[in-house]
């Protein structure tokens, strides 16, 4: 069977969920090889094997970790030319897309981004225009280079024992123009990452203040979910921008999305419309968010949410 490359996305030495999803998807396309660009492959090997990687290409070193993406793209492009894979999958994250873009230019090859499904013929499905339109497209020049949106499928294990091949990191000065001098982690506690979470609880302008966001966090923690925020809430300074859901923020597609005090402007709907189940709490019965909510509660979120939190605690 043809070889399919999956570019591993990891955070602090742990493979992200989207990586396991890509491995699962790649198994439907061919023999799966994971590509680790930067960081440490050894720490990830067990998990990558568990989800079906029969081979791991490990490209490591300060030249990759210390600079933004250009070097990673150089290594990946060289690997693609050497092994001629049937397809290359990357995460639809900022970095995944950036690497994919550079590789596409280097190889004069097409690419598809934000794919939620990919068939054996390389036809990818994308959901565009704020979730209103479904597009099927394919790469028409070169091999399919595809970025996969998190939460597009359920990862399933298929244990394999991967061999590890060290890949040479041969970079030029052009790969080392953007130097990363510091990495700052801003606390999100033990919560899952927004784009990958199965449950997201978001707050909007109706939450009223940064302090009141504790209520949103409390419900998220009780449900084991991530916290999101509408643009209005972020612009008002209630919550940091990296948690913004919407047209100019993250696009999420969780099993459950709970919108608290969010009116549901198109700007917000663009980022959460493909969630499986949507619940809304808003005091305005005419708020557009109710048009897409599977379950809506018209009322004061400062009464509804604490009562719900108490009820969940009782059931635990």
């Amino acid at each position: 069977m043809a070889e399919v490359l999956v570019v591993v996305e990891a955070s602090q030495g742990v493979a992200k969920k989207v990586t396991l999803e890509m491995l699962t998807l790649a198994r439907t396309l061919g023999d799966v090889s994971a590509v680790v660009l930067g960081g440490s492959a050894a720490a990830l090997a067990d998990k990558l094997g568990e989800f079906g990687a029969s081979k791991i290409y490990a490209a490591e070193g300060e030249d990759l970790d210390g600079y933004l993406v250009a070097g990673k793209a150089t290594v990946l492009a060289a690997l693609i030319q050497r092994v001629s894979p049937a397809a290359v999958l990357l995460a639809s994250s900022q970095e995944g897309k950036e690497i994919a873009g550079r590789v596409a230019v280097k190889l004069d090859n097409g690419l598809l981004t934000d794919v939620v499904a990919l068939d054996a013929d390389g036809v990818g499905t994308q959901v565009v225009f704020a979730g209103s339109t479904i597009v099927k497209s394919k790469v028409s020049k070169g091999l399919p280079i595809v970025t996969v949106r998190p939460n597009s499928l359920t990862p399933t294990p298929a244990p394999a024992t991967p061999s590890v091949e060290q890949v040479e990191v041969a970079l030029t000065d052009k790969d080392k123009l953007a130097k990363v001098v510091e990495r700052k982690v801003e606390a999100k506690g033990a919560r899952p990452e927004l784009a990958e979470a199965s449950i997201v609880v978001s707050g909007g302008r109706g939450v009223g203040s940064a302090d009141n966001f504790k209520l949103v966090e409390e419900l998220a923690d009780l449900l084991g979910g991530a916290v999101g925020a509408s643009r209005a809430a972020v612009d008002s300074g209630f919550y940091p921008h990296q948690f913004q859901v919407g047209q100019t923020g993250k696009t999420v597609s969780p099993q459950l999305y709970v919108a608290l005090g969010i009116s549901g402007a198109i700007q917000h709907r663009a980022g959460m419309q493909t969630s499986k189940t949507i619940i809304a709490v808003n005091k305005d019965a005419e708020a557009p968010i109710f048009e897409l909510a599977d379950f809506g509660v018209v009322g004061d979120l400062f009464k509804v949410v604490p009562q719900a939190a108490e009820e969940i605690r009782k059931r635990k």
């Binding site: 048009e291 599977d294 809506g296 009322g299 009562q307």
Partner: peptide
């Protein structure tokens, strides 16, 4: 998407949720 069930919170909106 189709709108689902929309209820008034009343006194037990949280419990119903």
């Amino acid at each position: 998407r189709q709108a689902g069930n929309k209820i008034d919170a009343g006194d037990d909106g949280g419990s119903k949720l």
